[in-house]
Design a protein around this nucleic acid. Structure first.
Lengths: 235, 235
DNA sequence: CCGGTTTGGATTGTCAGACAATCTGACAAG
DNA sequence: CTTGTCAGATTGTCTGACAATCCAAACCGG
């Protein structure tokens, strides 16, 4: 390409600093974001039909755009589509919650088990996620924020595997969980008493007690599962 | 329409019996199937742009339908979409193959590790998948068939976890691998000399040597990874 | 009065055509 | 050698429309 004769152009240094990847952009992405927000915030109940025409009008976009956005939600597991019957907001069954938790245990457990082999950036990311969570708890942030940060911490555990695909899978699982949580308001109050538990987990890891951390995580996930299932059963 | 009073025109045919999963389904599904087939069969090279208009004409459907089908492929990881630049068939990089294999190891390892706790139907499914694979090898089935059955066996290992979601993830990973294999014809000849290896793995499990099976699987996956990466490097 | 049938409205699946925004590449200008 | 401009191609999105299908309520015979 460049026939650099004298001065080479190799990475002249950090000329630019922060520089974020620009905007999320496309209309369908924004539509999907808005729908996701509405679902996570509990603005829409589980099982509610998502009518294309109505959404198009409400969002101020055309029906094909809404249709594509709905396809995204369906692919993420936040909604279900039946032929000629439209898409409905997913209703978290007890079985699916149990399945999500089982899958979570496999992924997060794999991450924790690789604590020693993981790169320092990944370990640091776990500590950073915990910090963000505990800070938000201390600041008494909103319910949605706490949930997001809490689940982000769990995803960071999967990041210890160093596999982008596993992290993507964990993110998808966590989205489903967030959907379930959004529909069980009675868990709102319990949101922050888990901060100590997570801190203890990271302390075990920092003490290099991987086996202990694994056992702790398994118990933590099991109790979370039962709590959600119980709350769902009463809903 | 037809107010058939007495004689209906419904192809009475062979009453029921087998009862297949109904029809070819929606147009976009069929379009996606056709594109998948073309990719897996190697009819399309990696990196090839998938032009919406051309595909619409070739498949005999409208552009929105093609667009949706392309969205499905992108969601499955078989293609990539860049804003205003269109959809291209994914080109399997060495990094992504390594990542897929790492993720595979986590999922399949988790399944094998749960061999004892798994239900008998799941264990039987593993044996059945192996049988189907070895039978196809003996019958010298086509390259595509062997690949599909081989990878189906690996997915069946994940099935030992009993988690539908983990199985779905494994299926997605395996699709990506199939994409990579489809673009490396030089591996065609090696397709069947792995049958013995798999038989040995199941034998270890049937002997209740889970740890041995895990070690065997790890080695098996590692060698497969290196083989594919090496073949890619020369492509 | 009740069960099954039919009809109508609502919604989705798919299509056709169109327009603006954006990318690519080449070319001209400094 | 870099920058600005332009034409062609392709995607992103919109409008409008039609057939197929599903849901529910009205309808009718027993």
């Amino acid at each position: 390409m460049t026939s650099g004769t004298d001065a080479d152009l190799r990475d002249p240094g950090p000329v630019v600093l922060g520089l974020e990847p620009l905007a999320p952009a496309s209309t369908v992405d924004r539509a999907a974001d808005e729908l996701r927000r509405a679902i996570f915030d509990g603005d829409i109940e589980g099982g509610t039909p998502l009518r294309e025409l109505a959404l198009a009008e409400a969002l101020g976009v055309s029906r094909p755009t809404v249709r594509e956005a709905l396809g995204v939600l369906v692919a993420e597991g936040l909604a279900t589509r039946e032929p000629h019957r439209g898409v409905h907001v997913a209703t978290p069954e007890a079985d699916s919650v149990r399945d999500v938790c089982a899958a979570r245990w496999v992924l997060e457990g794999a991450g924790v088990a690789r604590w020693r082999e993981a790169g320092e950036p990944q370990r640091e990311h776990v500590r950073h996620s915990l910090q963000a969570y505990t800070d938000a708890v201390a600041a008494e942030a909103s319910y949605e924020t706490l949930n997001a940060l809490h689940l982000a911490f769990h995803v960071s555990l999967v990041g210890l595997t160093g596999s982008p695909r596993l992290v993507a899978m964990a993110t998808s699982l966590v989205h489903e969980l967030r959907l379930a949580l959004a529909q069980v308001e009675r868990l709102k109050r319990n949101a922050h008493d888990q901060a100590d538990s997570h801190t203890a987990l990271v302390r075990l890891l920092d003490d290099d007690d991987v086996d202990g951390a694994l056992a702790f995580l398994e118990a933590h996930l099991a109790s979370a599962e039962e709590e959600i299932v119980a709350a769902l059963g009463l809903g």
